[in-house]
């Protein structure tokens, strides 16, 4: 996949899937701007990329702020000169059930996982329309397709992304802008590592526990999600729009028993 001459914006791009995707786009020839609300980590990331000779810039941006999506897209166009691909990767995950979820949890999840994705996409689409086309890839989740207990705001927001992707794809198809979502399963990121530590497990035990229900018996590497994002954003996917691609090692294909054969029940 070749992104020579293409300008790419990745939100939530200083760590995990965002970082791996930014690097993959850069390796494929794109000029990349990443955004993250963590200015310190972002600056360190930008320095690391510069040292590695990669064409990846960083801008600090908190997408929960009023007007931040509009300002971010304007900044991306200012720095990159154009915008061919937007990867809406930034998101927040509050692990609380229905009774424990506060108004603040709910509002923050909706603002970042749904509102900012819409606003960034709308602003980017206006730029892409004038350019003659583009591609927007939204970060959904396997939890946008099925649900798990004690993650009500996250599950709701990711399902909203799946449906928003369809609605935007129809609105933007006449302008040669494709809108696609990706629904990863658990991926080996700093966020997952943190979750394992929080649960008081060793990394090995934690990964075994998280992999148990996955048909492929392992988590995704961030690079595997990145390669799927690149495909969806590329001309190889020129007739793919509005859909959600599961990249989850078979998790969504299986029922609540996971990979356990029915005979063992």
């Amino acid at each position: 996949m070749n992104f020579e001459g293409k300008a790419v914006l990745v939100t939530g791009g200083a760590t995990g899937i965002g970082k791996a995707t930014a690097m993959a786009f850069s390796d494929a020839g794109a000029r990349v701007l990443t955004a993250s609300r963590d200015a310190e980590r972002g600056a360190a990331f930008a320095e690391e990329m510069r040292a590695a000779g990669r064409n990846i810039e960083f801008v600090a941006c908190d997408l929960r702020d009023d007007g931040a999506p509009e300002a971010l897209i304007a900044e991306a166009v200012r720095r990159l000169g154009r915008l061919d691909v937007l990867f809406n990767n930034a998101g927040i995950h509050h692990r609380f059930g229905t009774l424990e979820t506060t108004n603040a949890h709910w509002a923050e999840t909706m603002a970042l996982n749904v509102g900012a994705v819409f606003m960034c996409s709308r602003e980017a689409a206006a730029v892409m329309k004038d350019q003659g086309g583009g591609a927007i890839v939204n970060m959904a989740s396997d939890l946008g397709i099925f649900a798990e207990p004690e993650k009500v705001s996250y599950c709701t927001s990711k399902a909203a992304v799946v449906q928003m992707t369809k609605a935007m794809a129809l609105d933007l198809a006449p302008h040669n802008i494709r809108v696609i979502a990706i629904a990863p399963g658990d991926t080996f990121t700093p966020m997952i590592e943190h979750k394992i530590r929080t649960l008081g497990l060793s990394l090995e035990d934690g990964l075994r526990w998280l992999s148990a229900p996955v048909a492929m018996k392992r988590l995704a590497e961030t690079e595997e999600i990145a390669r799927a994002v690149l495909f969806l954003a590329s001309d190889d996917a020129s007739y793919v729009t509005g859909t959600t691609l599961s990249v989850d090692g078979g998790t969504t294909a299986s029922g609540p028993g996971g990979q356990r054969p029915a005979a063992e029940d």
Partner: peptide, 14 residues
């Protein structure tokens, strides 16, 4: 697509 299995990918222009 090394972590993609059991998936259904629409290529239908929407």
């Amino acid at each position: 697509a090394s972590f993609v299995t059991g998936a259904t990918l629409s290529a239908d222009g929407g």
